[in-house]
Simulated scan of single mutants.
Amino acid sequence: MRLLKLGILDQSPIGTGENATTALWHTIELARRAERLGYSRFWVSEHHDSGSLAGSSPEVLLSAIGSHTSHIRIGSGGVLLPHYSPYKVAENFRILEGLYPGRVDLGIGRAPGGMPLSSLALRGDGASSRDDKLPEMLAELGAYLETGAPLPKEHPLAGLTATPKVGTAPEIWLLGSSGFSAALAGRMGAKFSFAQFINGNGGQSATSEYSRGYRPGPLGRRPQVSVCVFVICADSDLTAEREAKAMDLRLLQQEKGEYFRSFPTPEEAAAYPYTEWERARIAENRKRMIVGGPARVRSSLLALADSYRTDEVLIACMMSDFRLRLRCYELLADLFFLRR
């Protein structure tokens, strides 16, 4: 029987009637459960100036998650490197690796993680000047983490050491939703995770391009592919579809730039007066989601993994109630015998 490794990407959603503190503690509780259920890794995201997602600092949240778990891999999904100094990112993850050796993943993204004003606040005067420097920033990060070559002598920061000096280094992943990100990961030697939960098209060709063009580089020596997808799994297809309709409306809100709104309830989604254009967008966005009861979800996840030629899928589950999210992850663990 075909088995999969399953990981989790948690975005710390703030549910109806909840606040950010509750959402953060739900993330920690979910990490505890994920470890007991047998999930391979637990990643947290980075979003800024959001009224519906509480995770703005993955490094801080990972420090707390690590202290409440003992062996599951923990990581960022991901740190938005263009906002930051590679040196500071390296030191943050050296600390995490020192605290939780052999368990840390440094997932790196290049998306803004919010609206333009938050990018301006994070980057200061260089708000629009760093994206084209991402390969240089990645090479610099690899030098500080000692996964790549030292900085050349002519570099103004040559000889600089990221502390603390610890005996292990995090796994480095590039996260992306395009062929550009996949090709960059292959050139830099990073592992690569395709964000199908962001872009429902082109992931298979992007990961194939990554595998064909991979070469060891400053971020790693061996290729590895995973895919991350929204999954809404419940005890029945009917319950899953009811929850998925709320997610449909949430994705429409995001496309309109409505990041400040709380997550819609299934009742709000049922009452919403959709236009023809919005219904077309919902149909397109369903490519980013797997929805259904256990039997439907299991076959869909196996088919997805086969299409990506990977043995690991990361799950992002958004549902209207934290108990339903927990149930989703419990059902998936049973489907794929994670607790064996």
Rank of each mutant, 00 (worst) to 15 (best):
E91R: 00
G77D: 05
R110H: 11
T69S: 05
E59N: 12
I95S: 04
D132A: 14
E136T: 11
D125E: 14
G113N: 07
S63T: 14
T69L: 04
P82T: 08
G78K: 02
V60W: 06
S57N: 15
G102L: 13
G124Y: 01
R73S: 11
L117D: 13
F93C: 12
H68V: 13
T69P: 02
P82Q: 11
L117W: 12
V89P: 04
G109N: 05
M115Y: 11
I72R: 08
L80R: 03
S129T: 14
G55L: 11
G78C: 09
M115Q: 15
S118P: 00
A121P: 00
D125H: 12
S129K: 11
G113Y: 06
R73V: 09
G78D: 05
Y87M: 13
S63G: 15
R130A: 10
L96I: 07
S119A: 15
H83Q: 01
E97G: 02
K88G: 11
G75C: 12
S67D: 12
G98I: 00
S76V: 03
G113W: 05
L120C: 09
D105H: 10
P58L: 05
A64W: 10
P86D: 10
P58E: 10
P112V: 05
Y87S: 09
G107P: 02
S128W: 15
V104F: 03
R130M: 09
G113K: 08
A64V: 12
S119P: 06
Y100H: 15
L117N: 14
P86A: 12
R103W: 10
H71N: 13
R94W: 04
A54L: 02
I72T: 06
V79Q: 05
H68A: 15
G124Q: 01
R130P: 02
P135A: 01
I108M: 03
H68F: 15
G107V: 04
G109E: 01
G78Y: 03
P135C: 00
L96W: 08
S70A: 14
N92T: 07
V79S: 05
I74E: 04
S85M: 10
S67G: 11
P101R: 04
S57Q: 07
S56Y: 12
Y87Q: 13
G124A: 00
L80T: 04
L99K: 05
G113S: 06
I74S: 07
V79I: 15
G124V: 00
A121H: 01
Y100R: 05
I65Q: 07
G66Q: 04
A111P: 01
N92R: 14
E91L: 00
